[in-house]
């Protein structure tokens, strides 16, 4: 009898402990975001660090975005062609490719690529700085780590993501054209004509809003995970601690992107 009470007691103790831990973590992340956003609008404003971060997050991701974008467009055209042919409406292929890319796949896949490329790197960089007391050193030198480290990353992330998404969409439309028109023989005029006819500002806007939000999410989660490495429950020590939070950051960012993708679609449709 006694052991049952004990087991049940321990279960609830663990449950409560977990709950408190996650609550605390959520609170910490919220405060972190607030501090970062505040530091963006607080002077002094320096362009140099933002440009450097945009180069890292944005320019350096261009190739992979071009590449994945064109393949996404190509497979969309391939799949779309055989589906549309059943209904005898291959002419709508351009519209189908463009709409899927603009509203859904462009922002989501581009964001997932940026998570893998830049999010992980940001998390590891900040985590290592935390681990080797570089962030403490910044604080002791009266340099605000939010302003100095975080603000440029946030600005660069939020600005880069829509641009990368636009590049992704463009590459996808070209890829779709190559497969649909050049390979499968859809009428060239129809491909673009239907695209012009069916894409409206709302579709573009949806993609734009999504990419802005995803940019913020990626930087927020990645930077925050690294920044609070030392407060991890599993003890964020050494190389293994950094690798663990980096994995966490990638998984969490990816999940957050898909969840917010649904939420934003539901709100804006």
């Amino acid at each position: 009898m006694m052991w049952m009470v004990h087991t049940v007691g321990r279960f609830f103790q663990k449950l409560g402990g977990d709950f408190l831990f996650y609550l605390e973590q959520a609170g910490r992340m919220g405060i972190f975001l607030g501090a970062c956003l505040l530091s963006i609008v607080r002077p002094p404003f320096k362009l140099g660090p933002i440009v450097r971060q945009m180069h890292f997050i944005g320019s350096r991701s261009t190739f992979v975005i071009l590449f994945t974008g064109s393949f996404t467009g190509m497979v969309l055209a391939l799949q779309g062609y055989y589906t549309l042919r059943k209904f005898g409406s291959e002419g709508l292929l351009g519209a189908a490719v463009a709409l899927s890319l603009l509203r859904e796949l462009g922002p989501v896949i581009a964001a997932l690529m940026v998570v893998g490329r830049a999010g992980s790197a940001i998390c590891a960089e900040v985590g290592i700085m935390r681990n080797s007391e570089q962030i403490d050193a910044l604080e002791c030198m009266a340099i605000d780590p939010y302003k100095y480290l975080m603000a440029p990353k946030f600005v660069a992330g939020i600005l880069s993501m829509p641009l990368l998404t636009a590049i992704f969409d463009m590459a996808g439309i070209v890829g779709g054209y190559l497969v649909g028109v050049s390979m499968l023989g859809v009428n060239k005029g129809a491909y673009f004509q239907q695209m012009y006819a069916s894409v409206v500002w709302n579709d573009v806007k949806m993609g734009l809003v999504k990419s802005l939000v995803f940019g913020l999410l990626i930087i927020w989660i990645s930077a925050c995970k690294g920044y609070f490495l030392h407060l991890e429950r599993s003890g964020g020590f050494g190389a293994e601690g950094v690798s663990r939070v980096t994995t966490d950051a990638v998984v969490l960012s990816s999940v957050a992107i898909l969840v917010w993708d649904y939420l934003l679609s539901a709100i804006m449709l």
């Binding site: 700085m129 080797s132 007391e133 570089q134 403490d136 050193a137 009266a142």
Partner: peptide, 12 residues
């Protein structure tokens, strides 16, 4: 303040 950490903590 002017601070020297035990592990120096230079920005690597």
């Amino acid at each position: 303040f002017g601070v020297l950490f035990q592990n120096v903590a230079l920005f690597d």
